[in-house]
Amino acid sequence: MATLELRNVNKTYGTGVPDTLKDIQLAIKDGEFLILVGPSGCGKSTLMNCIAGLESISGGAILIDGDDVSGMSPKDRDIAMVFQSYALYPTMSVRDNIAFGLKIRKLPQAAIDEEVARVAKLLQIEHLLTRKPGQLSGGQQQRVAMGRALARRPKIYLFDEPLSNLDAKLRVEMRTEIKLMHQRLKTTTVYVTHDQIEAMTLGDKVAVMKDGIIQQFGTPQQIYNDPANQFVASFIGSPPMNFVPVRLREQGGRVLALLDSGQARCELALGAASQGFDGREVILGIRPEQISLGAGGGDGLSLLRAEVQITEPTGPDLLVFVTVNQTKLCCRLAPDISCQVGDTLNLQLDPARVLLFDAQTGERLHLARHAAPLQDNVAHIAGR
């Protein structure tokens, strides 16, 4: 096991070409599971290849256990990698595929047999050892690829989108297997994915990337609850965060956001008045599960009356879509709620969970939260 640190790592492919990686700074502790997540072309696989030594860096340093390995060849970094394509030798048996790296290192045959048996038991593939890759399912081939990496007992494991070729059900199963494997082995792991569900469920730490830049680095909970900008907020979460354009105004020492469903209007009190926010147009962000149904009485809890346009039952949830400020708004409600297209709902937004983003840059804006009770969070409700 080992620590991993990246110090101002840059990667460029030539003069006049935009940098693929720009001042990447990361540090994970011994035994941590790091997720590199982002859309296609964001640089996450390039960064993985730089850590492995398959690509050279143009600047900065990569340290494993405090030692700079930036100039080392891949074989000298003591890293094992699992590829998206599995990269198994088709003419070799499962046993020989797992043992291949050990034979290259000239380990005694008894030690090789012992290690193959250990890995096969860990991954529950003992019954597959005599088969060839062509006789295996996609999930079984992935287990063999993982077994080949595990047999080396490296300092760091690297996974490059290992589940992207599997069907949805098998991805869930293999995700669980990888998490259990990490819990057993406690080996430092870096995992590349474009799937935010994998990022949230597998990682101890998550680095969200875009255009070769780390947009935010933190725990899954930090990334989800406190996104640094609109891109991070939109990329992490399923269903994704709602983004509604609003105009702010200040009144009575509070910042108010106008919401209009076409049936009713309300002004939601978001925080204490801040210089420069009066009249400003921003993007209001709120996650679907942070919108609930109000009682519809005069208790000040029902913030906005809106007409149901689409319903999507998912089993554990009911997704309801309405329109606010001419923008589709997704509400994640309990599955036993009875509502149909055309019904009118009284929706309650939690002001404490509302986020604001700059309409031009997407950067997060911060307001000083006021201590007003919930019933005071509605400045005005008007029906139409």
Rank of each mutant, 00 (worst) to 15 (best):
A334W: 05
A295W: 13
V308Y: 05
N325W: 00
G271R: 03
L259Y: 01
P316H: 06
N325A: 04
L284R: 01
L329P: 00
L329I: 00
G262R: 01
S261H: 14
A273R: 04
F321I: 01
E312A: 06
D299I: 05
D260K: 04
L318S: 05
L293K: 06
S274R: 14
V282Y: 09
A269H: 07
G253S: 11
G285Q: 03
G294N: 11
A334C: 08
A269L: 06
A306P: 02
Q290H: 15
D260W: 01
L333Y: 02
A264D: 09
A257Q: 02
L259E: 09
N325V: 00
C330H: 03
F321V: 01
G297M: 12
Q251I: 12
S261E: 06
S261R: 07
G271Y: 10
I286T: 03
L259D: 02
C331W: 06
S274H: 04
G253M: 08
S302Q: 12
V320C: 12
P313S: 15
L329N: 00
K328H: 03
Q326R: 09
G315C: 07
L270E: 05
A273N: 07
E307I: 08
S274E: 10
G296W: 09
G296V: 06
F277V: 13
G253I: 08
S302T: 08
G253C: 05
N325Q: 04
C331G: 07
V255Q: 06
R287Q: 05
S302N: 13
Q326G: 02
V324T: 03
P316M: 12
P313F: 12
L329F: 00
L304M: 06
P335V: 06
R254K: 15
E307D: 12
L318G: 03
S302P: 07
D260M: 03
E281K: 13
R254P: 05
Q309N: 11
R305A: 13
I286A: 11
E267N: 04
Q309V: 13
A334K: 12
L304W: 15
D299V: 12
V255Y: 03
R305E: 13
I283H: 02
T327S: 15
G300A: 14
